Amino acid sequence: MDNSSLKIVYVTHARIPTQKAHGLATVKLCEAFAKAGAEVELVVPRVWFSGDEDIHSFYNTQRNFAVTRLPAIDLGFLGMFERATFPLRFISFSKIAAWYCLWKYNKANRVVYMSHDTIPLYFLSFIAKNIFYDIHDFPSHSLFARRVMKTARGFSVQARSKIPFLMEHFGVSQEKIAYWPNGTEVSQFMAEGITKEEARKKLSIPLQKKIVLYTGQLFGWKGVDTFIRASSMIPDADFYIVGGTKKDIMRTKREARESQNANIHFFGYRPHDQMPVWLRAADVAVLPNTGREDISRYWTSPMKLFEYMASGTPIVASRLPSIEEVVDEGSAFFAEADSPQSFADAIQKAFRHGKEKGERAQQESARYTWDARAEKILTHIRTVLG
């Protein structure tokens, strides 16, 4: 069986498009499935704060997969009470998505239903047999998750550490699990058409300063507090934070003010297609994940890591299993998680000796593409379906 005989329906109750990484991972995987020859449909809820914004334009993807928006009970207009209404949106959308799939694909063969959310798969499991769980976070032991873990025909994970835990906690056989990390658009992040000086001029940032860069969200487990505290130990460098929601930026700015760090600069959210320019402008890119939470130590496959690698910018990262399965001492400078002094020392080393490791990381980044991840999963699906 080749990929052209596969129909993949990827269902998620997440808001897409979104500034958060899971949206990019979902859309890029769908694009890569379609590039490999599969017929792909992405099914998402229609919610009030994203409207009908074009997903392909937002993520700059090929228009090689269909996007279907289905209604959901959405009370997002309640503002501060919005979070309390999330379960209603999730469940209403998931039920509607199951009915939609039953109506559209009831008599179709070789249809595979995939999601990184357990609730849509829970309802789909009552009407379809080809359920595949693309595990982003480690699953809970909820009613929804238990049924999905029992009925799914296959699983895909981005972090190797998830495999023994799935086997131990859910009795999943290793043969049902496909492993491959997240990825990136390697050629895009190499940014070969622009120099560091040109990138800095384009971004209107100083040409002569040493620049240390963090990109992405500001959740607690991302370790940005360590990044901020390390900045005070290298006062002659500027530390840039590109990303984060308005709420998280306000909180993190307060932390920076309390630490009296004058060399921390916040640039807020920037479109993903600008990230190669920011990385070209930087002297060092930092991945300061905390070691205090399992999601950071074991379960994550940070997309920013692959972007950093492809850019060739020297990397300083927390020494954690989730990161060490991708880079080693030859391609990154490691620091002890949650230790500002360790990060400051590693950043100084990267300033002086980073060129060789940056080049090595860039060479190794060629393995970590969305196409490679999609092909690994498709091969697994073909094996399972027979």
Rank of each mutant, 00 (worst) to 15 (best):
K35V: 10
K35N: 11
A36W: 00
G37I: 07
A38F: 12
E39K: 14
V40H: 06
E41Y: 02
E41T: 15
E41D: 04
L42C: 10
V43I: 15
V43R: 06
V44E: 04
V44P: 08
P45H: 00
R46K: 14
W48D: 09
W48L: 11
W48Y: 13
W48K: 09
F49D: 15
S50L: 02
G51Y: 07
G51N: 05
D52R: 08
D52M: 05
E53G: 01
D54P: 03
D54T: 02
I55K: 04
H56D: 01
S57A: 14
F58Y: 15
T61F: 00
T61C: 12
Q62W: 01
Q62L: 14
Q62K: 14
F65L: 11
F65I: 07
F65K: 02
A66H: 02
A66L: 08
V67H: 03
V67F: 06
V67N: 07
R69D: 08
R69S: 03
P71D: 02
A72W: 09
I73Q: 03
I73M: 12
I73G: 04
I73P: 09
D74W: 09
D74M: 06
L75S: 01
L75A: 12
L78S: 08
L78Y: 12
L78W: 09
L78V: 10
E82I: 00
E82V: 01
E82R: 15
R83I: 01
A84D: 10
T85I: 03
F86M: 13
P87S: 06
R89N: 08
R89S: 14
S92W: 12
S92H: 11
S92F: 14
F93I: 09
S94G: 04
K95M: 15
K95C: 15
K95T: 08
I96C: 08
A97I: 01
A98F: 03
A98E: 14
A98Y: 03
W99P: 00
Y100W: 15
C101H: 07
K104A: 10
K104I: 00
K104W: 01
K104N: 05
Y105T: 05
N106W: 13
N106Q: 10
K107S: 10
K107E: 14
V111E: 12
V111R: 02
V112I: 15
Y113K: 00
